[in-house]
Design a protein around this nucleic acid. Sequence first.
DNA 1: CTGAAAGCGCTTACAG
DNA 2: CTGAAAGCGCTTACAG
Lengths: 350, 350
Amino acid sequence: MQIKGKVTSFDIAHLAGVSQSTVSRALRGSPLVNEETRRRIQAAVDELNYKVDKNASSLRAKHTGTLALLLFEDPTADESHINPFFLSMLGSITRASAQRGYDLLISFQQFSHDWHADYADSKKSDGIILLGYGDYLAIRDKLQKLVNQGTRCVRWGAVLADQPDISVGCDNLSGGHAVTTHFMEQGCRRIAFLGDASSHYPEFFDRYRGHIRALNDAGLEAEPLLQVNAESTERSGYDALETLLARGITFDAVFAASDLIAIGAMRAMDDHGLKVPDDVLLAGFDDIPMASFVNPPLTTVLQDTNLAGEILVDNLLSLIRGQPAESAMLPAKLIVRKSSLRGREDKSEK
Amino acid sequence: MQIKGKVTSFDIAHLAGVSQSTVSRALRGSPLVNEETRRRIQAAVDELNYKVDKNASSLRAKHTGTLALLLFEDPTADESHINPFFLSMLGSITRASAQRGYDLLISFQQFSHDWHADYADSKKSDGIILLGYGDYLAIRDKLQKLVNQGTRCVRWGAVLADQPDISVGCDNLSGGHAVTTHFMEQGCRRIAFLGDASSHYPEFFDRYRGHIRALNDAGLEAEPLLQVNAESTERSGYDALETLLARGITFDAVFAASDLIAIGAMRAMDDHGLKVPDDVLLAGFDDIPMASFVNPPLTTVLQDTNLAGEILVDNLLSLIRGQPAESAMLPAKLIVRKSSLRGREDKSEK
DNA sequence: CTGAAAGCGCTTACAG
DNA sequence: CTGAAAGCGCTTACAG
């Protein structure tokens, strides 16, 4: 066991009685190495507990074998809790990267701050994954610049016609359509929408458009007063519902653009003596783990985060290999739970 | 704007009319650089959009400015969801690292597999943080080896007398004591414990010992049949409660060693017609976000994950700087919610 | 199949 | 305060 100094490929070469080049070849799995030689080298590696220096190999080979994940946090969100939906995405991206032999570097960024995506420029990673909601229009130029300077990057978010980058998102429009259609099947006619509805927040906007389309399909008109802006936090959902109440307008269902908003709205209704689903039906979006635990369990739209993580990583790897990659839209699946069911006969869980 | 070839410190030097060494010095914030020179260099850096190559600087300087987080996942856990408590720790560790200027490399490992902590050996990181529960005795030797070979590492988990490494954990014993004392104040005498109680799982064991100690303090004896093994998953909690039921033993409260176990037990009780808290009181441990959303809200023990993340990172940085670091025990705080309150007068949330 | 040699882009004594 | 030079530990043509 070597004690002093770092073990390098020269030490291995010496021990195995070959040149350092051959050690390097053997360790990288080159076919140009004799089996017997390879075995001797491996034995030396094991004996000295040698590990290839990642920095040296990355510097020389010009790729790092690591991916960077930039997670944008909403500065207004509770410091201690990250949006559970993104946490779930983070988990699936980490897993997908590992399966494909890549390390994952993680960075949190404030969306509002002057964030830097220099993980590729500084050669810390071969490419980056952008995750988090925020004002899309505010980052569009930055995205454009990133792509222009050759940075490989993929983004989680709405798939738009003119976007400069590759993105993977769920079919928010269909999801929104499904929720509102479901509400109407339950007899609702005055459905409130809690969430921003502008091109600044394309995901929410698509959900809103699906909602409107469903209304129109049923011959109903949208009522502007039934839409209240909200960002994806409980606090914001709580406030949005109070705003809705303050408008003095009647509503028989609430479609929250995210589960967090829905949970906040649920609290607000509780505080104001409104019962879900007896007085008002409620649905969210995302199917975060909490959604099935709130009381009553929350109807929502499932986005397959496992699949999303894999597609995101695979797309990024394609880009890195110089292969083409395409933006992708994942299916959105309505999950009906008690919060949106009128009939009280169904009181049994599960 | 330079198009072809990578921008290096030589390009900056050329543009700024100084030597490459000076560029390097200026960029590392050396005091040995004239202010005017520094400004010229900065201008060149901005103009060419230069970024220091991390691999080259790490190779040369022998430190990487990144920390590695090894997250052990229980292989039996649901593939799609990471234990929420660890997710919360992950968030706080990521934040703490970023605040101190370190990047964070994340890796998931199966505890049962032959995991490798070679993130330091291969120079990808300056040190590693170990996170996740699992059979402590099974990893003890590996830990010892890591420490022996000079790898800087800190671990989240029970602080034990003879551990080879530095760890940060919460005061599980006091936490367990507080839960059981609280149960007894509510009039309970036959308190079941769901979770492993052996030195293989020191955290659960300490919670169990706190539980026993509280019983003894009240002059009660422990009843072995009231303890059922369980690992930290909902599934396992569900099964453990059914095992308890199958024993045909009476109990008036259930102390689950983790919130996930408690939530599983809650489901099982629901399926068997037992009402919480009317028939049985229930408490968990961890205070994961879901705990306050289940019905009824779950009494639990809060571990301050924000603080934990900071101490873990600070300890690791001390080790990296060659300074001494000490294992630390964080306070455990009982959070009482409806699931453990006998009185039904308190029906109002919050 | 193997070796000698160049070089990736920095940091840091060393000398002024 | 600045520059010339060595060298971190690899990978990869190039030549055999």
